[in-house]
Design a binder for these strands. Structure first.
Lengths: 195, 195
DNA sequence: GCTCCTTTGTTGCCTAAACAACAAATTTTG
DNA sequence: CAAAATTTGTTGTTTAGGCAACAAAGGAGC
């Protein structure tokens, strides 16, 4: 985890941002399936070949879009360094809800297929994040690493599942209440590993 | 006046736009004198050397900014093809007023020095525009070209002078009235050439 | 089935932009 | 005023992006 400053060419940064922004803009009026690489390149004012120099295809692009977006909300919810399982799990649930709200506010043309791409990326990031958190969580120091890895996998899916359930149950319950109801379940599986 | 489509590299277009936009943005918080080429390049996310590849210095940049801006309002006021001297002069006066309002609304940090740069560019454009208009104005067909050129020079300065006078007299008079009062004077010098 | 048309990736050549380093001019500051 | 620090232009070299043109893979329509 060194200060890995790789000195990336400013043109590369700008081009990536142009492409990302172009997709966001297009998703306001088209579904992800409708959008072509050609349209993205045009909207980004770059050449189509340049697109392929940055992303292998539009799926790789949307993956990065999701990761960038979710990272933002995740970091934001981690500002207060939640050091107990309860507060950490609360933060994760809020971050997912934040991100979902942004997605379906900003770009209302996101669709089923899009959602499943998002789900994969988010679960992947959650697993990585939880893994790191667990490794730094004192009380589990003596638990074998493999056990912590399995726990991280399980929790990432569980956390996502719970929020998804709330989202697709028409969000009739207040989000804060729902989170308070969910957290104990998640914390329980961490506590279980201590014993 | 052929359809002179010169096929300009998309990167060039984008870079010029980035630089122009960067200056506009900086002029919201700094005076023109305060702004350095370095800051412009940074705000535009381009290299300083690239700036110099497009503009010889920041004065050349602001010239283009003014020309682009004024051209917009001039074209807009010419939409109705004013074919009489009266309507043409009205359109010119309005265009200058439009542009001035934009400048001092958008970028309130514009200053004396900036204004004089603007004045030069606008008078230059006015002269060119009036020259062309006069050349296509039937009733002056038999007037020697040199006479029309001198008239164009005089009118460009006159038109600008009148609007400037209104602007610096605290704009106490209604603009429309002021324009109606001014137009006959300008038209008069055109009519004088016919006789 | 077949054609026509669009989209997808890929490639080689060319150009605009990045970078770093420079001298000269200008501004700041002690 | 003189030293230090910015800012200004310029230049040679390196690199990212633009531009065909291409084969291949879907569709859409007949």
């Amino acid at each position: 985890m060194l200060g890995n400053v790789v000195k990336v060419d400013p043109r590369t940064k700008r081009t990536r941002k142009l492409i990302l922004d172009a997709l966001i803009q297009l998703l306001r009026t088209h579904t992800f399936e409708e959008v072509t690489v050609n349209e993205i390149a045009e909207a980004a004012t770059i050449n189509r070949a340049t697109f392929y120099a940055h992303f292998s295809d539009k799926y790789a692009l949307v993956d990065e879009l999701i990761r960038d977006g979710f990272m933002l909300y995740l970091d934001r919810r981690m500002q207060h360094y939640p050091d107990t399982p309860t507060r950490y799990m609360q933060a994760l649930l809020w971050a997912i809800a934040d991100h979902w709200a942004m997605i379906h506010g900003q770009c209302n043309q996101y669709h089923r297929f899009f959602d499943s791409l998002a789900e994969n990326q988010i679960k992947r990031m959650l697993e990585q994040h939880i893994q790191t958190w667990l490794d730094h969580y004192g009380p589990l120091r003596n638990v074998p690493a493999m056990q912590r890895q399995l726990l991280a996998t399980m929790l990432s899916w569980s956390v996502y599942a719970l929020v998804a359930r709330w989202l697709y149950s028409d969000r009739c319950q207040n989000l804060e209440h729902f989170i308070n109801d969910s957290v104990p379940l998640l914390v329980g599986s961490i506590e279980a590993l201590k014993g």
